[in-house]
């Protein structure tokens, strides 16, 4: 294990990058640290009408209005209570409409780890492709499996869709 760590640190120049890992239920997920803007505690959000159910609402982040996504709901996990230890990770995503900031609600933040690109294994294809295309790969860190997320695909597309659909479809849905 210790040699592994040493290798990773040596290779941190080219083939490796830093990943912020967080816990959601029993799983550990990771996102590219360069995308993380800040980590903050939970505070009540303002609901947005006609939003997809996993978009909880918006928060004031130092003057910007930032949408908050519940990853548990996005992954169809059992819903957890929001408590004072619930954490929001604010990230930036690239969408077709440009850079957007948003926050994800997770159970807790674990660690920052170096991940060597060579160690990243592709996600096994199970069933439909679209269900896993937001997973960049799997990597094992300290004997735990970390699911690396491609947040541009996971959230960016959601946000872009939400913005488009909002006016027409959501309205039609509420009208039905």
């Amino acid at each position: 294990m210790s040699t592994n760590t040493a290798e990773r640190q040596q290779g941190s120049g080219n083939g490796s990058h830093q990943v912020l890992t967080f816990v959601l239920g029993d799983e550990t997920y990771g996102v590219d640290i360069l995308r993380v803007q800040e980590i903050r505690g939970w505070s009540a959000v303002t609901k947005i009408p006609h939003a997809p159910s996993h978009v909880l609402g918006v928060l004031n982040l130092r003057g910007s209005i930032v949408p908050i996504v519940d990853l548990r709901m996005r992954f169809a996990l059992e819903r957890a209570e929001y408590t004072t230890v619930t954490v929001i990770i604010v990230m930036s995503v690239n969408t077709p409409a440009g850079r957007r900031d948003f926050g994800v609600v997770v159970d807790g933040v674990s660690d920052v780890v170096d991940v060597n690109s060579a160690e990243v294994k592709p996600a096994p294809e199970l069933g439909s492709r679209s269900a896993t295309d937001y997973i960049r790969g799997l990597v094992s860190v300290a004997e735990r499996m970390v699911v690396l997320l491609d947040i541009d695909r996971l959230i960016g597309r959601d946000l872009a869709l939400a913005a488009e659909v909002e006016g027409d479809e959501a309205l039609a849905a509420s009208a039905a």
Partner: peptide
């Protein structure tokens, strides 16, 4: 709209 989108 900066971070989300238009809401009717």
């Amino acid at each position: 709209e900066a971070n989300y989108g238009h809401i009717e």
